[in-house]
Design a protein around this nucleic acid. Structure first.
Lengths: 333, 333
DNA sequence: CCTCACTATTACATCGATGTAATGTGAGAC
DNA sequence: GTCTCACATTACATCGATGTAATAGTGAGG
């Protein structure tokens, strides 16, 4: 049986509350007493029961992190950074996957309200807007990424501007037929809308008329889906001069398809991605991309969350993370 | 203020225990009463407090998942599968990263004993053997991967046999100078030992004398480290006929280096990896690898864990997951 | 020597859900 | 009409840690 405060107290010859005081350090405890208690804790190998503490304090020390799919390199890198920063600050992290299943939304919110989670960091790529009803019943929520019309705090990269800048960069050596991969049909994700918008803004700025046939749709933002979409596209269309993929994952799939077709990157076609994922840096050829500080995203998200936990009153806060265009081999020339 | 069983009970005109009975369904509740309670729960938007439940039941419904680095595609895919399977079975998953820091071991174990976690799935790539002292004080532990001399349950792929088979496959078209990338110097990970052993066994079987200069070490099993190590290696050594990387991540780094050197894969050198990570399937050229069912790993790990939770007595259990060699473009010929 | 002021420590109640043991309720048998 | 018996429901205690308010202990000042 595991030792409790009671056991420690008995062994140290004090009351349970004194043991608690030693642990928490808010109420002063005299030197000798503190020593006796600490020794007793060590002898009994005491570890506090976090369920009990959570019940009493109304706080669990756990934050939730909800991502669409942990298996995606981008999500994985975000998760890695958030877990790392959270641990440094003494938080545990509970992972939730929202996937493509709207049902998860409800489960997620229910769990978030069950007091096992003090706050939630949510990357709502597929979540319906309505899902996050940030009300009194919910713990604090911080959103990651492009979401419109949400009243929660948010950390984001300006996808519109980044997509515009990337398109401009691709066009610099005189390329005019620039395709975009990742424009989903039907229900557009907020991110897709932003990036498509930035892409179009760049074309307009360059005086290049928008060519609908250069918009390549893609069901899911995965290498598999991108590879397949591009394969089909190439069968029916002339080769563009450049290909702007809305994520590195899609770009990796695209590079594979181009290679299978015997096309040389960047000589035959320039390629760029978005997210600066590790595997993109080592793609063949290494991938030009939009880079931003993922560690900063994690730090800022946690800062917003913890601030919101201590003071729920203040209004919505937005933190924008800088981005920069990183030109690598896939678009040189 | 959030509603509690008490509030629900008052509204439904019953006792708190009856509300509890309705939720848990073990003690029978008559039809009309059940209805009244359910309606009251809905009206008050009641969500049970999991801290309280955890305290009372001695179970939190949360399992821990400890991985060296979530950002790694392999870890990410494992995490994805475990989270998915766990959710299907009603578990929440808390993520811990052990990184390269032995200090984390202790923290991890402490947290694991603090009752916020009912069980732990641990991928101890860097963990010291001594860390996992599976004793009565610890919740059930299931290990993932190659670990020697551990008394905990374990799910693993036979790395030795897989590495041997892969080496044999690389040798089939008559290649004899096969290099291995990932042999760490100094403290060897159990996985590295297994894979190196399998590689050497294959050479022996083929009657190829072991050439120490074909063992390429690599500090960390990352694309960056692999790319760099291989770069240095190529400066001082003749080009091998094939390169067996101990993980796909390293292989991706290696492909980048080979491409930078203007070497063609597989014509100049064949390349293979291990893990069958998504990005490997879309590498250029697509990567030959050792594949295994990650979903099965997750399912088995959870099965072992839950079985161990209900019955802690039985002896150590080992579950071996099948693997197969998947030949793709990086080694054709 | 007694009081006052101040600090360290304690007893008790509490957080919310649930197991235990006792109570209440009704139908059916005699 | 009473007595079982079966079953639904309840009162109370409990899980472990901690805030609150009261108590014990200490030393100084009169």
């Amino acid at each position: 049986m595991r030792a409790t405060v009671k056991d420690v107290a008995r062994r140290a010859g004090v009351s349970p509350k004194t043991v608690s005081n030693v642990m928490n350090g808010v109420v002063p405890v005299s030197g000798p007493t503190r020593l006796r208690v600490e020794q007793a804790m060590a002898e009994l190998d005491y570890v506090p029961n976090l369920s009990a503490r959570g019940l009493r304090n109304g706080r669990s020390g756990v934050i939730g992190l909800a991502l669409p799919d942990l298996g995606t390199p981008f999500s994985a890198e975000i998760a890695h950074n958030i877990v790392e920063v959270a641990h440094e600050q003494g938080w545990s992290v509970q992972i939730e996957e929202t996937g493509l299943d709207p049902q998860r939304e409800h489960e997620l919110m229910t769990r978030a309200r069950s007091n096992l989670i003090d706050g939630l960091i949510l990357n709502p790529v597929v979540l319906r807007e309505s899902a996050v009803q940030v009300g009194v019943a919910l713990p604090p929520v911080v959103l990651l990424g492009e979401v419109t019309q949400q009243l929660a705090d948010r950390v984001f990269v300006d996808s519109f501007a980044a997509a515009r800048d990337m398109t401009l960069a691709l066009a610099r050596p005189g390329r005019r037929r620039i395709a975009a991969l990742g424009v989903n049909r039907g229900r557009q994700s907020a991110t897709a809308i932003q990036r498509t918008g930035g892409y179009q803004a760049a074309l307009q700025q360059l005086g290049i008329p928008l060519d609908e046939s250069l918009l390549i749709s893609c069901d899911t933002w995965t290498p598999a889906s991108a590879a397949e979409s591009l394969m089909e596209y190439l069968d029916g269309h002339p080769l563009p001069e450049a290909l702007f993929c809305f994520t590195d994952s899609m770009a990796i799939g695209a590079l594979n398809t181009l290679w299978k077709r015997g096309l040389r990157v960047p000589d035959d076609i320039a390629v760029a991605g978005f997210d600066d994922v590790v595997d993109g840096r080592y793609a063949v050829p290494s991938l030009t991309t939009v880079s931003f500080d993922k560690r900063a995203i994690a730090t800022e998200a946690l800062r917003l969350l913890t601030e919101r936990m201590s003071d729920r009153s203040h209004g919505q806060r937005l933190v924008e993370i800088d981005y920069r265009i990183v030109e690598r081999d896939s678009s040189r020339g």
